[in-house]
Design a binder for these strands. Structure first.
Length: 565
RNA sequence: GCGCCUGUAGCUCAACGGAUAGAGCAACGGACUUCUAAUCCGUGGGUUGGAGGUUCGAGUCCUCCCAGGCGUGCCA
């Protein structure tokens, strides 16, 4: 990998120059290697001399000059097991930057690596197979998923893909909050609609769910059982209807996520956690361990000893465990299942919850295992006007409706273009209306266009095998747009690593747009398939590498890569 | 009150502490007898909310202020 080689080269130059007394000791110097914004600044650039100079109070250009002398010797010649020189030029610039220009043959060789690694290009082994559990979406199964859930679904899935790409062993989990008041209210609401549809006079629960979906469910249940529960004992009736409604709702949620292309490895039921006795058992243990105590008739956990603002209730005065108590048991269960790192993804409205959960895990001897990624909420708009959403009145655009209206790829992509730290304005009308100019199509179009070139070549009888052209053929590449495209391709590997480690999938969308732009520009300036067989072979190869990286990137985002549009 | 997030072009958003702050959309002007014009090229557009500070260098870090969002439950 070019960046890695460059880094090693710089580190060697640092050691050698320090040994010769030309620069200060470089121990622990943290420098940056990046693609410069301006072409005049070379293919890659580093601030190493400036960082070092600032630490030692020396002149950065002086240090840069000393380093450049050594870098020229080692980088511009063959060595270190290299068959080809890495660099064609290295120079000091500006306040003390070192700018690198890659040797063209080395660029071409690197391109062959992209092709030979194929779908694995961009993968790393940073995780060492560490088992990670990512919990996301996790909703009350008392209504259809709303638009906000879509953001977590897209984000969680893409993040999982990224983590897998850098070598973690990832499982996706959905925590079903199928226990507690909300479930009871839901059951009561369904029951009321059920009776209503059967012609009974009933009063709708004051705090019940008014959404029309509740009536739909009630109708389905009524048709299913022919109304045999109308005259059943009320307790029995509500319990059965609630249970069947829950199963129906759960199926709908699964289908929504399925059609969005998000598959969970596991669905974990909060209710089962209570039924198994794990929650109360854990509260008991906490008391034994001196981590929980009784006060005012309730049982409290001493989270404030571990960084929380105050202690939190585990068992209410009425003896019922809190959501927090269940969550402690749940997270310990995750760890017991062998996961070494836990990631939870959710909305910023859970913010107040993070510290106490981390405190609880620390109390249990697991500091730092829980990472919580909180995203800002989604504001749905239509033609600039905010769309009111309220679960109570039932006026809302569901996740399904959104996906149906704008399409899976557009929805996923829009969710992923913005950093999760910013509140997302999702304008449905814009997403549909601008669909022709939508960034997702821009990227997909690049992919489809390349496929079209390959098809055209096939029709012309151009040899389309998987084999990699020899260097003599590849040397026909050298136009500015060709080299720009190649260098843009090479950014992919580091980008994947950074996006995964920084939990920032939105960087990948940005990158793919840049890659597509580099390709479109190349396409508009040069013909791929021509009478010149050698040049055609070389360009086809470049274009195939581009195709590969577009595919690898889109697949991490969970966006399809169409062969024609 | 306290805590977290945000404030960048008309709009939606990018930018590991690095060089002249970038894309898309919107506006305007150009490019298809040639592999997909869902593309490309060009033009205009900015006191990065405000004020200080840290340093070789700040949209980025620190302090204060302003504005918006979300928290701050014996709800989940």
């Amino acid at each position: 990998m070019i960046v890695k080689e460059l880094r090693e080269l710089i580190e060697r130059a640092l050691e050698d120059a320090a040994e010769a007394g030309e620069i200060p000791a470089p121990e622990g110097v943290d420098f940056v290697l990046e693609r410069p914004r301006h072409k005049a600044h070379g293919d890659w650039a580093s601030n190493v001399a400036m960082v070092l100079a600032s630490r030692a109070g020396r002149n950065p250009r002086e240090i840069a000059t000393a380093l450049v002398r050594r870098l020229e010797e080692s980088g511009c010649s063959v060595g270190d097991g290299r068959e080809y020189p890495l660099l064609s030029a290295v120079e000091v610039a500006g306040p003390g930057f070192i700018n690198f220009t890659l040797d063209r043959d080395r660029v071409l060789r690197e391109l062959t690596r992209v092709a030979s690694e194929g779908a694995s290009y961009g993968r790393w082994d940073l995780g060492g197979g560490l088992r990670v559990l990512v919990e996301f979406v996790s909703a009350n199964p008392v209504g259809p998923l709303h638009v906000g859930h879509g953001r977590w679904a897209a984000l969680g899935d893409a993040l999982c893909n990224l983590l897998e790409a850098v070598g973690y062993d990832v499982d996706r989990e959905f925590y079903l909050n199928d226990h507690g008041t909300q479930m009871e209210v839901f059951a009561a609401s369904v029951e009321a609609r059920y009776l209503e549809l059967a012609g009974k006079e009933v009063e709708f629960p004051a705090e019940g769910y008014h959404g029309s979906y509740v009536r739909d469910i009630a109708r389905a249940l009524l048709e299913e059982d022919g109304g045999r529960l109308v005259d059943a004992p009320p307790g029995e009736r509500r319990a059965e209807l609630g249970e069947r409604a829950y199963r129906l709702m759960l199926r709908r949620i699964r289908e929504s996520l399925d059609s969005f292309g998000v598959r969970f490895d596991n669905w974990f039921s909060e209710r089962e956690l209570h039924r198994s006795g794990a929650v109360l058992e854990e509260v008991r243990k906490l008391q034994e361990e001196g981590l929980a105590y009784e006060k005012d008739g309730a049982i409290w956990m001493a989270t404030s000893r571990f960084g929380d603002d105050k202690d939190r209730v585990l068992l209410r005065r009425n003896g019922a465990p809190t959501y927090f108590a269940a969550d402690i048991a749940y997270h310990l269960n995750k760890l017991a299942r062998g996961y070494r790192h836990l990631i939870n993804i959710g909305g910023a409205d859970h913010h107040g919850y993070v510290r106490r959960m981390q405190a609880a895990l620390e109390a249990k001897g697991h500091p730092g295992v829980l990472e919580v990624i909180l995203g800002q909420l989604v504001n749905l708009k239509r033609g600039g006007e905010p769309v009111r959403m309220s679960k109570r009145t039932g006026e809302m655009v569901t996740f399904d409706e959104l996906v149906e209206e704008v399409g899976k790829d557009v929805a996923r992509y829009i969710f992923l273009t913005r950093s999760q730290d910013t509140a997302l304005d999702f304008d449905i009308q814009l997403a549909v209306q601008e669909s022709m100019e939508n960034p997702v199509y821009y990227v997909q179009y690049a992919h489809a266009r390349i496929c079209s070139i390959l098809r055209y070549g096939l029709g012309k009888g151009v040899e389309m095998g998987e084999e990699i052209p020899d260097l003599a053929t590849l040397r026909r590449l050298g136009e500015e747009e060709e080299m720009d495209l190649a260098l843009k391709i090479f950014e992919f590997e580091e980008l994947i690593r950074d996006a995964a480690l920084d939990r920032a999938p939105h960087r990948l969308t940005r990158y793919l747009e840049e890659l597509a732009a580099a390709f479109h520009l190349f396409y508009n300036r040069h013909r791929v398939i021509s009478d010149d067989a050698e040049l055609t072979a070389a360009r086809l190869f470049l274009v195939r590498c581009t195709l590969q990286v577009l595919r690898n990137g889109l697949s991490i985002l969970g966006v399809s890569a169409p062969e024609s549009m």
